[in-house]
Simulated scan of single mutants.
Amino acid sequence: MCAAPGDSAEWLDAVAWNSEGLAPVIAQEAGSGQVLMLAWMNRAALQRTVELGEAVYWSRSRGRLWHKGESSGHVQHVEDIRLDCDGDTLLLTVRQDGGIACHTGRHHCFFRRLAGERDSWETVEPVLKAPEAIYGE
């Protein structure tokens, strides 16, 4: 991860944060290009991500910053951060510790595929580690 941008907040101001002060973030695996997950960041999460070189998101369910891997150990080491053409979506290229990005114990969060006559979702990716073994009861 590169050194944090200067003290100026201009780089943070370039992000088109939504009305809740958030922007969607895609985490993509370095090397394979696999999309691991989609999460959200606010200004503080993006700034902390840059400072640490590890992904820090805004947890909408917890209502607080969430350092990816804080309870699972599955930290995302950030290699690159990109901002899309509209300035409203971030892309992180990450190295995923433990090979598990999803809280369900799978490699990535996109493990269901629209199946058959397009009327149901089928699970197409295995659980690599049971969530109970990752997080406890």
Rank of each mutant, 00 (worst) to 15 (best):
A3F: 10
A4Y: 11
P5L: 03
P5K: 11
P5V: 05
P5H: 04
S8D: 15
E10F: 02
W11Y: 12
W11G: 01
D13Q: 14
A16D: 11
A16P: 01
N18W: 02
E20R: 14
E20D: 15
L22E: 04
L22G: 07
L22S: 05
A23C: 13
P24V: 02
P24M: 03
V25H: 00
A27V: 02
Q28K: 04
A30L: 02
G31F: 00
G33S: 10
Q34A: 13
Q34V: 14
M37R: 08
L38M: 13
N42C: 10
R43K: 14
A44N: 11
A44Q: 15
A45W: 03
L46N: 00
L46V: 06
Q47K: 15
T49S: 09
T49Y: 06
T49P: 02
T49M: 05
V50H: 06
L52Q: 11
E54L: 01
V56D: 04
Y57Q: 10
W58R: 04
W58Q: 00
S59Q: 02
S59F: 00
S59G: 02
S61M: 12
R62F: 06
G69A: 11
G69F: 08
S72Q: 02
S72F: 08
S72E: 09
Q76S: 12
Q76T: 09
H77S: 05
E79M: 11
L83G: 06
L83C: 05
D84T: 11
D88S: 07
T89Y: 06
T89G: 12
L90G: 10
L92Y: 15
L92F: 15
R95N: 11
R95Q: 13
Q96W: 01
Q96F: 00
G98Q: 11
G99T: 12
I100F: 09
R106L: 09
R106P: 06
H108P: 02
F110Q: 03
F111Y: 15
F111D: 08
F111R: 04
R112D: 07
R113Y: 06
R113W: 06
L114V: 15
G116Y: 13
E117V: 06
E117W: 08
E117S: 14
S120V: 11
W121M: 15
T123E: 14
T123M: 10
V124D: 03
P126W: 06
V127C: 08
V127K: 01
L128I: 08
K129F: 03
K129N: 07
A130G: 09
A130N: 12
P131C: 05
P131N: 04
Y135N: 03
Y135F: 12
E137G: 14
